[in-house]
Design a protein around this nucleic acid. Structure first.
Lengths: 245, 245
DNA sequence: CGGTCGGTTGAAAACAATCAACTTCTGTGG
DNA sequence: CCACAGAAGTTGATTGTTTTCAACCGACCG
């Protein structure tokens, strides 16, 4: 973040209107903004580091800040009073979250890995939106995409089998890793089996068993429990799309 | 809609900045807009009637219009290639849908009952948003709420039992009926058992059986299959919140 | 009056959950 | 550096909720 020998920093300087607070480019929430929009964002930006498993904010808290992931992974989740949990999303570098327009947070946010965040004060962000139509339109577009992603997740949760859920999940991780410039085939799975289970509406045992079965079928390989090799991507895609058992 | 003896029309005239295209007030997408914002919306508004079970648009179609429900009920759904279906939302008078910012529709929209809609050309709406920050902010706020609702639905689909799902669903229908000024206790259930099942991630048989069981337990009464009396609302709420079996 | 459609009920099957044991990995302290 | 403890993950046996397959009921309509 401060070493001048970091090759990324040079790239950022050359690329022009990039935030400069992080190494992210095209995928990021702030990427591609005009100089003006970036200036505004930078002016209200704060930084934050969160240890693995620590909470950024809790469901029901007054929503006083929005965040962007710089490095690490964050999960958003909701709880039932008896402890049942649903993870409603995983966030990777470039992703934006916690935007509630002055209400309360609808979900809790916790770091999955050690994480660096950009923090934007809600009130200042809202004021900035008043002044920066470009930014507001971008946020609107982002919310449209988020909603569409949530609808796809509903299809997964309501209508897919365990195997289809896992295939879909692994391909999603791979696609997003690729978008950030990370390797897409031995794909990193930074979250625990419990987090995966709570995201897919399954139990840890079913996640584990299903992965083992997929390995046996030559669909994937598991070099470590946090690394999945997508051996037969086409077959995975067919399964994820509900065209095969 | 045109009779001068309709008491609603007088109310609308008195209330000032109400669209006038429909009988809706506070809950509506356009309610509470400034005269200016309303003028803009009215200028790009078209009307549309859709018969029950007919399609407004299909998943994957280019998104050339957004819509608001005036009367009737609309469902949004996604399909898997083998026919499995997930209903991702029901829309009632005042609700806004089909807003995709120039992309393609992520879901299909079908009328559940005979339905009247306001139609807004996507390109004109986007141009209007450029000119009307008030409207864009409202839309942004709406998307935030929609997303939060979608996240709650994920919790339901991933982690609730059939009985909890039904309790939650009936209370949601009741709450929204009340918000529109409709009776909240013998609550109207305009959609078929299949639509309910596809919304809750269940089968029609499970929906039917669960309703029967809830009737037997004195939680609800079923005057007709499309009308549900919420006999014991508190118990329903406890079940919906996951505090009781 | 027969036919179809939507809804309900019954019996059997299946997928995933639960309960439980065991293995592997990780980190810590001797 | 090794030994141990705890956490995370895997595997096995069994249970159970929901699905599937099937029959039946009642309403609406030609």
């Amino acid at each position: 973040m401060s070493s001048t020998s970091n090759p990324m920093l040079k790239l950022i300087a050359e690329a022009g209107p990039i935030c400069g607070c992080c190494d992210l480019e095209d995928g990021a929430f702030c990427a591609g903004l005009s100089d003006d929009g970036l200036r505004g964002l930078k002016a209200i930006r704060g930084n934050l580091r969160v240890d693995a498993q620590h909470t950024v904010f809790r469901e029901g808290d007054p929503a006083d800040s929005a965040y962007a992931v710089v490095t690490g992974t964050v999960k958003l989740s909701k709880l039932l009073s008896d402890g049942r949990r649903q993870v409603v999303g995983f966030l990777f570098p470039g992703d934006f979250f916690g935007f509630a327009l002055g209400g309360t947070y609808a979900v809790s946010a916790e770091a999955v890995t050690p994480t660096a965040l950009c923090r934007f004060s809600e009130s200042r962000l809202e004021a900035l939106l008043d002044r920066t139509p470009e930014l507001e339109r971008r946020l609107l577009r982002r919310m449209v995409m988020e909603l569409s992603f949530a609808q796809e997740q509903m299809l997964l949760l309501g209508r897919m089998t365990a195997r289809e859920k896992l295939a879909h999940f692994l391909l999603m991780l791979s696609r997003r890793a690729e978008a950030r410039g990370d390797p897409q085939s031995p794909v990193a799975v930074p979250m625990s089996r419990l987090d995966m289970a709570d995201y897919l509406g399954l139990t840890i045992e079913t996640v584990s068993r299903t992965l083992t079965a997929m390995k046996k079928d030559g669909l994937i390989a598991l070099p470590t429990s946090a690394l999945v090799d997508l051996v037969n991507r086409d077959a995975l895609r067919r399964i994820a799309d509900g065209q095969a058992g």
